[in-house]
Design a protein around this nucleic acid. Sequence first.
DNA 1: AGCTCATGGCGAG
DNA 2: TCGCCCTGAGCTG
Length: 274
Amino acid sequence: MPEGHTIHRLATAYREALADRPLRASSPQGPFAAQAEALAGARLTETDATGKHLFLGFRRTPRGEQRWVHIHLGLYGKVAFGQGPAPAPVGAVRLRLETPDAYADLRGPNTCTLITPAEKAAAEDRLGPDPLRADADPDRAWRAVSRSRTTVAALLMDQGVLSGVGNVYRAEVLFRQGINPHRPGRELNHPEWQAIWTDLVALMREGVRLGRIDTVRPEHTPEAMNRPPRVDDHGGEVYVYRRANQPCLLCGTPVATETHAARNFFWCPTCQPA
DNA sequence: AGCTCATGGCGAG
DNA sequence: TCGCCCTGAGCTG
């Protein structure tokens, strides 16, 4: 379930479970075995997340050469953490990190490679500002958005423009800001962009805190509106994501959907007028 | 058992 | 824009 909030949570989870202790790295069924071998004797010293990219930092000695494991979960990747000695691995575990009393199993990632600090910097350079990072510069994204003929829906998913936003946050932030997804970036005004960015910062921080994407304002919750809760396997309360043809929570108009670049997006034609 | 779909992203054409 | 890579859940039959 990986949008940026998931990745930032994983950075913390890896650090808390495994950092600064002797550990064993292995790739029980995966093609990462040789690189896991190269981590023998190293400790996890730090973790970092930018957008949907997770970086696990290793050193053999406190001042030794640093190496990073670069992880991108893609659509299906998952990490399972456990207490105690690790059991026999189940399924295709790409990377297992374990100490005597904790372990983490990575399955199904798009990317899992061992890289140098320079390669990490290069990977980060390809990413736009991440609303979850304190060092993010939203003006960098605005410069790209305000020059582009591309739709704001596509720009929000372009990790080189801004990073960490996925299909759920994209649909939800545009709904919350009343912005039609088809509008070209260069037709947005700066206050509209500021509102999108500020809302993403708030929504994604809340996502990190809760571990799920919840975007419905307090006055629109099931309790406040005396309506049935929305049940969906992504686990949060949302306005339009995956609610095609269902009535908009605010105005009753059927939620519209379209597919672009193999991704569905959702919007309310009334609350987000063209 | 087999199909479809999913919160991603890359490279070919 | 399409096909492809990775995994798993939830259908259908």
